[in-house]
Design a protein around this nucleic acid. Sequence first.
DNA 1: CCCTGATTCGC
DNA 2: GCGAATCAGG
Length: 187
Amino acid sequence: MSEAGSGWSDERVELLKKLWSEGLSASQIATAMGGVTRNAVIGKVHRLGLSGRAKSPSGGAQKPRKSVSVATPRGVATNARATASIPLVQGNTALAAVAVAAERPVETPAPAAVAAVATSPAIAAPESQRVTIMELRENMCRWPMGDPTTADFCFCGNRTTPGIPYCTFHSRIAYQPPERRRDRRSN
DNA sequence: CCCTGATTCGC
DNA sequence: GCGAATCAGG
C-alpha cells in the first residue's frame, strides 16, 4: 500500500509541516507531494494551526472579508516561531526532489519514444527552462530532466495548457498512441 | 495573466 | 476533518 492520493497520513503531515516551515508555498508543496491541491495544503496547514511562519514572499496578508459576522475568535496566529534563518531555495531543491522521488516515483517515459522524437529532424525541441521543483508551477511542463537521484534533476518548465502536465512538445512524447508509428502520411 | 495565502462552508 | 470555492491582494 502506498496509496498516496488523498488522506493525510502522519508521514504526509510531517512532510507538509517540513516543507511549509521551510518556506515553500502551498502550491509548491501541493505539486511536490502530489494528489493534493494547494487549497488542500492551505486548509490542512491552517487546521494544524500552522500558518504565519515567516513573511510571505508574495501574496501579502488578507483581510477577513468585509462584514464578517465573526463569531470565531481565531487568535491562533502569532506563532512564536522566530523568523530564524530561512534557508535559501537552492538548498532545498535537493530535499524536495528527494521527497518527491520518495513519495511519487517519477514516471519515466518510454526511452524508445524519447529517442524516436529526439532523432526526428522534423521535430525541434524547444528550449527548456530547466526549472527545479521549486520553480515549477502548475502550468509548467513537468518533463523530468536529468537524474532524479542527483542534484542536476530538474524539469522542462515550458508553458503548458491547463490540464496537461507537459508542454506541447513533450506531450507528443508522453501521449504517443500505441498505434501511430507509420502510415502517417496524412500529416 | 500569473501568482500568493485566508476564509468560509458544504460534504 | 477535508478541500473546493471564494475572496483579497501582489
